[in-house]
Nucleic acid binder design. Structure first.
Lengths: 158, 158
DNA sequence: GTTCTTGCAAACCCTTTGCACGTCT
DNA sequence: AGACGTGCAAAGGGTTTGCAAGAAC
């Protein structure tokens, strides 16, 4: 029902199917709240914290509790629909794993602005290192901390 | 004075000089507590959280407060003597930047065990991406999340 | 002597938990 | 009906802050 507000790369129905498959497999229940959370996340199309999502849902008129938002975010992370990041900030940041696959983050240490980038060599490093130590790669997180060479580009600077 | 308990790669006196240079430059004061914290960190030679360091210092007979430990860890991170990491856990983890330069982390998502590795290609990615977006690289953090192929290797598994 | 730092405890933010109520199966 | 999920508020862990006492300059 929210297809209009999402980008062309996000297929909410597909995510819901992925989610319900997971819930069924784990013998968890299908609740309205769980699917509502997924709907709202698809609308966001950006990094968000649990609390930001909670406030967004309240502002959208949804009746939901913080506890349910947190618990659903856990479920969605466990079934790999969401990626959970820990940047410098205190709170965990989430994003749809399908939104832009396998990208990493360049973070300005002056203003905290986050730029997404994609570099296939990260994948090969992951492959090589995991093989070397006898591990099965699951996912990675490469964070580059840097400062703008030209401060005028650092528009988020305060 | 703690040279005996540190590995050959850590030069505490050099770190103290680096620290005092920073303090002078920033017009911060030289206090016994600040250098004591640095001494104890050099003894640890592993990842540690602020609270772990605080407890370690108490057990070592030091009289220091949590607040001072936290504030000194901030200073040491700001002057790049320490690296501050955020792995999956709630608390931030620190380590001496000079301990093993430019290494990254392979983390078992089953047991949380952390393996350090070093791959020069990470450096070149950092260089390339920062150049592309007009940034000055400062540091990076590559975390590979994986599981042991052979569960017997996952000795930390509970 | 002034300013900065420390220590302590309380406050704070983010997240989890306990319990009563409601909902899914 | 029974088990699980929700909502609320309180508790919890990690970290920061306010303020008085102490140390550095």
């Amino acid at each position: 029902m929210n297809k209009e507000s999402t980008t062309e790369s996000i297929n909410v129905e597909e995510l819901k199917k992925q989610f319900s498959d997971y819930l069924r497999k784990k013998k968890y229940r299908n609740t309205l709240e769980r699917y509502l959370v997924l709907d709202r996340i698809a609308e966001l199309d950006q990094h968000f914290s649990a609390d930001e999502l909670y406030v967004y849902m309240l502002n959208s008129g949804d009746k939901i509790s913080r506890a349910t938002v947190y618990s659903t975010l856990d479920l969605l992370s466990n079934c790999r629909i969401l990626m959970k990041h820990r940047f410098q900030s205190e709170s965990a940041k989430f994003e749809l794993a399908s939104r832009l696959p396998h990208h990493d983050h360049l973070i300005c240490i002056e203003c905290g602005h986050i730029i997404e980038f994609r570099d296939p060599s990260v994948e090969s490093i992951q492959q090589k290192v995991c093989e070397q130590f006898g591990f099965e790669p699951i996912e990675h997180s490469l964070q580059l901390f840097a400062v703008c060479k030209d401060p005028r580009h650092c528009e988020h600077n305060q």
